[in-house]
Design a protein around this nucleic acid. Structure first.
Length: 305
DNA sequence: AAGACGAAAGTGGTTGA
DNA sequence: TCAACAACTTTCGTCTT
């Protein structure tokens, strides 16, 4: 499912990730979309059954959204970088301005505020623009369904972003979302669950491997260590070691082991902080990994270096 | 002195009656 | 709605480097 190719033109990172499903290559260090072959990011409720009018109807007025999607989709295709962000924003707000004439002012005003907040949080987290767009779409749907009622706008924004991250397999932890948005972690989790359930958005359980790139670069580990940890994770998954466990803990443990193997020792504390788990959790996962995958000898080899 | 290890008790979320 | 349960955290004492 994942291939690693060449280097990111923006930051020189090696964490380029090809997502075949969506046909895009994303740099996981800086979030740059390096290449995008497939334009349509539309959700399944739009694209999967274009002729099925009954199903379409359940999300309200699909044509408006489809146009919205398409318009943005072509923009994302450009080799956007920080310097071009300004242009993108401008055209997005132009588009929003167009909406003003069509949509009631109450909803429109809320959206404007919310999208500004969304943009702020997204850029704080350095999220790819595709994720930001997805989150905006989710939020818009949530507003139309009246899901914001009784909840703060900010928490729904955070929840939408979290959902968008998960869908695009560039996961951020609830802690990170919480720090960026200033919303309580629990609250984000709640609205996230609520919104995804109400909108019928299905989300795969997040994969520990998705966290590796980011943790690894925070810890300044070598690419070898990083790919080794992914191999470890793949083996662990094959042996059902990962199910039911928190993905961040497993990712952290795999990274810790593989750092030991390659003689790039990091303390449990360091890894734990980056991953947002405790040392104890790392130890537990670490122990499981060692005995299930007999990595003891490899670790010893690493120590000699 | 710092890190690693493990036991024990506590917390918040999920599940199933 | 409530109790059981698993994963994770907190805290703390001991061992290792």
């Amino acid at each position: 499912m994942a291939d690693y190719v060449k280097k990111c033109p923006e930051c020189g990172g090696v964490n380029l990730f090809l997502n075949r499903e969506k046909g895009e290559i994303v740099c996981r260090d800086c979030g740059l979309v390096v290449e995008e072959k497939m334009v349509d990011f539309g959700q399944e409720w739009h694209e999967s059954e274009p002729e099925d009018a009954a199903k379409k109807r359940r999300t309200g007025a699909p044509m408006t959204y489809t146009q919205f999607d398409r318009g943005l989709g072509t923009e994302i295709g450009q080799r956007g970088d920080v310097y071009k962000l300004g242009d993108k924003n401008r055209s997005k707000f132009m588009r929003l301005r167009k909406w003003q004439s069509r949509i009631s002012t109450a909803i429109e005003r809320n959206l404007k505020l919310a999208l500004a907040e969304l943009k702020r949080v997204a850029s704080y987290l350095k999220l790819p623009s595709s994720v930001e767009e997805e989150a905006a779409r989710i939020y818009t749907l949530a507003v139309q369904r009246g899901l914001v009622r009784g909840r703060s706008m900010e928490s729904v924004v955070a929840g939408s972003l979290y959902a968008a991250c998960r869908r695009h397999e560039v996961p951020r932890t609830l802690d990170e979302l919480s720090e960026a948005s200033g919303i309580d972690k629990k609250e984000i989790g709640r609205t996230y669950r609520f919104v995804t359930r109400e909108l019928g958005i299905s989300i795969m359980p997040s994969n520990p491997i998705d966290y590796i790139a980011r943790f690894s670069s925070s810890l300044k580990l070598s690419p070898e260590t990083q790919s080794k940890s992914i191999k470890i994770l793949e083996r662990a998954q094959a042996q059902e070691l990962t199910s039911g466990r928190g993905p961040t803990g497993i990712a952290a443990a795999a990274l810790y082991v593989s750092a030991l193997i390659h003689g790039e020792k990091r303390t449990q504390r360091e890894v734990a902080d980056v991953a947002g788990v405790t040392e104890v959790t790392i130890r537990n996962r670490y122990k499981e990994l060692l005995e299930e995958l007999n990595l003891e000898k490899d670790v010893k080899k690493g120590k000699k270096k």
